[in-house]
Design a protein around this nucleic acid. Structure first.
Lengths: 331, 331
DNA sequence: TTGAAAGCGCTAACAT
DNA sequence: ATGTTAGCGCTTTCAA
């Protein structure tokens, strides 16, 4: 079918071992021989078949990254960071799970059947026990979304502190009734729960009790922001500021508010989360919490590669710095 | 290291051949034996090592999809269509080239070294000759972006007609001075060139000559839309409508126009391209040309899989239907 | 219905 | 510095 190492060896008049050495830049081969072999390789248009190499070496140098979706996210920067950290030894292979447990499991098959050496799970739907079991046999890492009681190496931000910062800023500017638009309680995402805890802590510090009526629980869909705004404005004392656990929800809230004639920034402050590019493009530009995407990606792959090569694996959680970015949707 | 087919065979008291047959659902194995083997497989937690299987079968059932970026695109739908068309036989592996020729070539190595069975190139930077050479030896397909003189199987829309439709709509509503914001002339992307041809044809049909002063050539960066608007408004007779070859550029144009106090939709019409989710979220909602992403993805993978299995490959170009979506950024 | 054995393409231990 | 050879885990032909 295609040209193999044997063909090259024959054509170059050497053994396959020598060709292999040239291929792997072994120094135990004379310059002339190497040059001759390389000539033949070029001439024959030979590419080593990695299926053979991988089988023999029991490694693929591929890392699978399972992302929930490629749409409207800040994953782009993370992926860039991952690629840079992986090069030149590893390749990053992306696949989307659509936040679907079955799909995620199917993709993890690649780990079981040795198609990849390791996997990064972003926003996993797996539970702690399953993750810990996996972690024992394979090299995995969590990214952005931690899982309680899991001993899997994780890179994320301090979501509690980030929400605390965002809501504190609202409070310092004199707002007292702060709405929360979250997926917490609807999904199992711990980041949402953590952000709600941070929201509550900020309120408490200003002597305000968390009031469930100022919390709107919904999905990640941006149009749920419409419903949130409608709900809040229907209250006797509508919130003066709204903290959304995603930029997309913030867009929904703002859009609906503008439709209702509410002045964003003055009559109503809104803060999103993630600092996706849309938050800067939107009118008004949206105040948000920025996650250090590139660094997150870099760190998680660096740690994972470390784990691949070390018998004793790190299972800690790396917390990176978030940043509150104040724009026009707040005063 | 890990449990192999041999271990299973030994534990089940059968030959590896029998285990292999069970693994591949061969009917040439008795029900009792199959059940017994499956029990052992479960008990031992055995997963077949695909490196062995792939080497033996000379296939991986993986398809590589090279995308320029995961940010702010309509690729999300395309990828969904690809996954659905690939399942259950193939897995889609994504990788980002960042529109960088070197990176694209590096990723194509996976094709050469048999890590994947085929590759889809989106917005490739490769030239026709290179593509045709590749196409002879490997299974590849182009998606969204055609390449002149390439004989590679391609799925895309009719960009010329799409632009014609968008600009014609402007003209039918009485606009005569139509600006074009494009990357054409700056990059090699044929879609931009095609759209410019459609723009010109529409003008000509209304007895208007293309006037280079109404064309602003820039990069894909959304902030270039700012510059475009500034440039156009500086003209003696500014355009009454602006056609942008991407939604992102349209956002830039609109944002800057609003900043200048120009009423979008009435004083100035704007049309984007691609119908990314942002175009619907933005205020005003943006008129745009929608590409049938899901179907594009589906068709390209279906064609590619067809090619993998057929000795004689199709090398045609499939043109799918676009749709003009009129929203508030036009009258 | 089952088993024995060859071999996919490559690397690496060992020998020279 | 180079060659010989075993074998990675699997599928498949052939024989029984």
């Amino acid at each position: 079918m295609s040209v193999t190492i044997k063909d090259v060896a024959k054509a170059a008049g050497v053994s396959v071992a020598t060709v292999s050495r040239v291929l792997n830049n072994s120094n135990a081969v004379s310059e002339e021989t190497a040059a001759a072999v390389n000539d033949v390789i070029k001439e024959l248009g030979y590419s080593p078949n990695f299926l053979g190499r991988n089988l023999r070496k029991c490694e693929t140098n591929n890392i699978l990254v399972i992302i929930p979706s490629t749409e409207q996210t800040f994953y782009s920067e993370i992926i860039k960071g991952m690629q840079d950290a992986a090069q030149p030894d590893y390749d990053i292979l992306l696949s989307t799970s659509y936040s679907h447990l079955g799909t995620e499991m199917r993709l993890l098959e690649m780990l079981f059947n040795r198609t990849v050496d390791a996997a990064v799970l972003m926003g996993t739907k797996l539970d702690a026990k399953t993750l810990n079991d996996l972690n024992r046999k394979y090299n995995i890492a969590l990214c952005c979304e931690r899982v309680e009681n899991s001993q899997v190496f994780t890179v994320t931000i301090d979501n509690e502190a980030a929400a605390y910062d965002a809501v504190s800023a609202f409070l310092r500017r004199g707002n007292r009734r702060i709405g929360l638009v979250t997926t917490g309680g609807m999904t199992e995402a711990l980041s949402s729960t953590d952000r709600e805890v941070g929201y509550t802590r900020a309120l408490n510090e200003f002597g305000i009790d968390k009031d469930e009526k100022y919390i709107f629980r919904c999905t990640y869909d941006y149009s749920d922001g419409f419903k949130a705004l409608d709900y809040f404005m229907f209250l006797d004392n509508p919130p003066e500021a709204i903290f959304c656990i995603s930029d997309l929800l913030a867009v929904g809230v703002i859009k609906q508010a503008i439709k209702k004639g509410i002045k964003i920034g003055t009559e109503l402050e809104v803060c999103g989360f993630d600092n996706i590019s849309l938050s800067e493009m939107f009118i008004p530009e949206i105040t948000t919490v920025s996650q250090p995407g590139y660094e997150i990606g870099q760190k998680v792959i660096a740690g994972l590669i470390e784990n691949i090569h070390n018998p004793v694996k790190r299972s800690d959680t790396v917390i990176l710095e978030h940043k509150l970015i104040v724009r026009n949707s707040s005063r």
